[in-house]
């Protein structure tokens, strides 16, 4: 079929299929034949879908966009780990060379109360947007473009804020969390903005509002399992959660 015939793998997939938000879902079995080790996980699914379409089946719905690991759209729990368990790797950047011929792969959507399943592997992550809308920005007037460089940011602070800003908002932290909490996501934004001079003016209000939004949108409480950091495709550290806790305590006395 393709030039990869000699290296092709045959895999058994168990994929979560669900027609709509209020429909019951279940795992269904598919075969992925002649998979190239050079394919990405999503390309493998593309081929499965092509076969499904050719045979009159219903293609598997999944989220994706940039396919270069920066947009945060892809969202699959593969063999029990969000994004498949390769460190700092999104599903789109996970390659089939990580699997062997004959492997059985379980593919499920993010599962958390805050992320209702829309269809198959697609979940609604609006709840994360609600958290950001509650304070993940600066509204203090910071001047025009030219003034941007007038506010000096120490290099260590810039690095720290950039580490926090690496979050792509995919929601793997929530999918991995035994409590369905979005504390890592929330803390990354709180820490990033609290570290920068432009964000400090609203730091207290921000942490309170974002934490409230976290609670109001169906997420659970953080109990420090640190499962989130391990699953995060950007390696966001739970040190930012410690920072959020500090910012919250400061806000209590404000």
């Amino acid at each position: 079929m393709s030039h990869h015939d000699s290296h092709g793998m045959n895999l058994v997939l168990h994929v979560w299929r669900q027609k709509g938000p209020n429909e019951p879902g279940k795992l269904e079995q598919y075969e992925a034949k002649n998979v190239s080790p050079d394919q990405s996980f999503l390309e493998m699914l593309d081929e499965v879908n092509e076969q499904l379409i050719k045979t009159g089946g219903d293609p598997i719905a999944f989220d994706h966009d940039c396919r270069e690991g920066i947009c945060g759209m892809c969202s699959q729990v593969i063999n029990g780990v969000p994004h498949g368990g390769q460190e700092r790797t999104t599903v789109c950047q996970l390659h089939m060379r990580n699997f062997k011929d004959g492997d059985t792969i379980y593919i499920e959507p993010w599962k958390a109360k805050a992320f209702p399943i829309q269809r198959d592997l697609i979940v609604d992550r609006t709840a994360l947007d609600k958290i950001s809308q509650a304070g993940g920005y600066t509204s203090a007037h910071t001047g025009g473009v030219a003034d941007g460089n007038a506010i000096l940011v120490p290099k260590p602070s810039a690095d720290y804020a950039m580490d926090a800003a690496e979050c792509i908002g995919c929601g793997a932290c929530v999918a991995a969390c035994p409590n369905g909490s979005a504390m890592l996501y929330t803390s990354a934004k709180v820490a990033q903005l609290a570290e920068l001079p432009q964000g400090q003016a609203e730091a207290a209000k921000r942490v309170c509002n974002m934490v409230d939004a976290l609670q109001e949108n169906g997420f659970g409480n953080c109990s420090n399992h640190y499962e989130c950091q391990a699953a995060c495709p950007k390696g966001i550290s739970v040190k930012f959660i410690a920072r959020l806790n500090r910012e919250y305590q400061k806000a209590l006395f404000k």
Binding site: G85, K113, P178, N179, G180, N221, E227, A230
Partner: peptide, 18 residues
């Protein structure tokens, strides 16, 4: 609250750190 926030319905779930 945490039990309610996590339907815990993964067919396969591997713990990485918990």
């Amino acid at each position: 609250e945490n039990k309610a926030a996590n339907p815990g319905a993964y067919a396969v779930k591997k713990q990485l750190k918990a």
